[in-house]
Nucleic acid binder design. Structure first.
Lengths: 221, 221
DNA sequence: GTCTATATGTGGATAGAC
DNA sequence: GTCTATCCACATATAGAC
């Protein structure tokens, strides 16, 4: 059977008849994302990832060539999932800018919580020096950066539109977008999917809605 | 001469007659903060810090017992500098809540930029698992956490006051504070003190003022 | 496909010369 | 006070058994 190596991850052609290999590779990736989120990339050993899987490193190295390749795949998935959900909302130009921004911000916030490990690791890895010495991953790293920039472009477009038609008050859309995404991305720092306190529990949807309204109000000025 | 060991750092009694030791310890700390900011704590070796100083590890280990102790001192200084500047603004109750919040937010934003390495490392180290295995630093780590909570309390107080007198529209002050601090803390992620582009240059003060207005507008709703 | 064993390099920390 | 030399633990990655 033919195999496709993509970003260091062994993948069968999209529709795997047996299904097993893709599922197992996904399990390795999920485990890695969780451990990276807990301990940081540099603070995580391959043995840690294997432990999280209840296996040994043999299993990890069967699916990935190196630790850096695993990280790259985590970043890829995190960014891809995010853009897949927000792009359609950004392109719905039937709505006025503020309503569209509200939808985008709310969805972004929800992804931060529902996909917490991936998004947390993704945001922590915005540091440009992370892949410095690793020439093998340079191309993959460039791709991630580009995806991230295109993603922020979606927000910049709607903020610019709103500031031109008077909905928003900003004179510096790029800076406003940074304010918006800062509020929303910061969720990954204080939100922990595991130990959700029961008393005074606020649902993910309420959190997302509240913060989305906060950033839209900030943009209105 | 008597020496005082504080958080793993060798310090002479406050007013050092010769002044040298404190200055040199501060140089080690500054270098460590810069390298931690570039490479992350786990990604930094003691040799890296020594290189940044133009020295060898002998120098570093003369002032600090361990790498974890250095980090603890970076976090301490980062948090202390921040609270020293913002607390007076928070306690100026002659101003209405929105004006006070504006001052606090602007000052917080400026500290993020002017003290970038310390603040960046500080925020990256909010991860509770960082000092997990390190029993020697547990007490110092608890202190940092407490300082951070007291600091956020300053913002919560002003937001609550404003939401009670109708200046702000929030029903969940804690969440609003997280939105506010997220926008401002995120500065450390995209702002890099070194390669400031000359063209279309926006000053630190302009950035701080713009984002401060953004978060106050967000709180107003 | 997953395991154990191991080669190899690196990092934190210490000892002791100067 | 700063250096060099060194110990020891651990991490990445590979080889090869099952």
């Amino acid at each position: 059977m033919t195999e496709v190596i993509s970003e260091g991850r062994i993948m069968r052609p999209s529709i795997a008849t047996k299904g097993e290999p893709a599922r197992l590779a996904g399990e390795v990736l999920d485990a890695a994302a969780r451990v990276f989120a807990r301990q940081g990339y540099e603070g995580t050993s391959i043995d840690d990832i294997a432990d999280e899987l209840g296996a040994t490193k043999g299993r990890v190295y069967h699916y990935y060539r190196s630790k850096a390749d695993i990280l790259l795949d985590v970043l890829n998935k995190g960014q891809q999932d995010l853009v897949d959900i927000i792009r359609p909302l950004a392109e719905d130009t039937t709505l006025p800018a503020d309503q569209r921004l509200l939808n985008m911000a709310r969805a972004h916030a929800e992804v931060m919580m529902y996909q917490h490990p991936y998004q947390y690791v993704s945001l922590r890895s915005l540091n440009p020096n992370l892949f410095d010495g690793k020439t093998a991953q340079r191309e993959g790293w460039r791709t991630i950066r580009k995806m991230r920039e295109e993603y922020e472009e979606l927000f910049r477009a709607v903020v610019e539109e709103g500031s031109e038609d008077g909905t928003f008050s900003t004179t510096n859309p790029r800076l406003t977008v940074r304010g918006i995404l800062g509020s929303l991305n910061w969720i990954t720092v204080w939100f922990h999917p595991d130990h959700q306190p029961q008393a005074k529990h606020v649902s993910k949807e309420e959190i997302a809605q509240t913060l989305a309204k906060f950033v839209v109000a900030g943009a209105r000025g």
